[in-house]
Nucleic acid binder design. Structure first.
Lengths: 125, 125
DNA sequence: AAGAGGATGAAAATTTCTTTTCAGATGGGT
DNA sequence: ACCCATCTGAAAAGAAATTTTCATCCTCTT
């Protein structure tokens, strides 16, 4: 039977409070504010089970290890800050999936925008 | 001094003949048709030096190890076939870079389209 | 055609990320 | 409160991609 532990609750809360996809390391750091003894293995175990129960979905970005975000959101894309490495959600989608070459069948698409987030806007680099 | 070896020439030719980004494994397989003794370490070494001399650029796709394509091409995006795993180039770009939230600065973007390529169009899966 | 230093191939080593192991802690039904 | 299967934390092990090592080969200059 699936138990409700402090660790599991803390990880779930972190995603309810976050407004952006989180990496396992970010989850660890945020959830340790609630449960300081938390270990990375427990984060991975709960990320997996929270996916299996449909609470989280993985977010893949080019050249990046996966992040995770809450499941069930509307179609959207992502912004990767090149300074701090954080990922943000972009509402809406302007992509006109028009001229594919003949013979290609499109089933899905992903857009990644790179740049600077508000907190890193004015830094050097 | 940089030498012109059979291996290096073969790898370069593979990219001149290919019309799509190639993974290190794909480069190995294609270049072995020209130089059967070719090893994977040599592929990696030459991918690196061909990048340094500006002949190749890396192509990152979500959740995928990097491919490489010829440098200097016009802005374009990529199509990943979910059946065979090959990546194709998509000419043009329909992305209206759109309503970013205030405070975000966009510097670049990437679009990945997923689906079936002509050769895999009618297969099951 | 001979010499010197870069290049190669195979295997071992690294790197990065993730999963497993295992002994001890703990949630929750009784 | 008790029991015990599940969960946890730390460390070891695994997986996957890439880099390094090293003995040998080969390209280029002389």
């Amino acid at each position: 039977m699936k138990r409700s532990t402090r660790q599991r609750r803390a990880i779930r809360e972190v995603f309810l409070e976050a407004d952006r996809p989180l990496s396992p390391q970010e989850v660890l750091e945020l959830a340790r504010r609630k449960v300081p003894s938390l270990g990375l293995a427990t984060v991975y175990r709960n990320l997996k089970s929270l996916q299996e129960e449909g609470f989280l979905v993985p977010v893949a970005l080019p050249g990046e290890p996966p992040r995770y975000e809450r499941a069930g959101q509307a179609h959207h894309h992502h912004f990767l800050c090149r300074v701090c490495g954080r990922v943000y959600e972009l509402l809406g989608c302007d992509l006109g999936l028009t001229h594919l070459p003949p013979g290609f069948l499109a089933e899905a698409h992903e857009v990644t925008v790179y740049g600077r987030c508000p907190g890193c806007y004015s830094q050097e680099g």
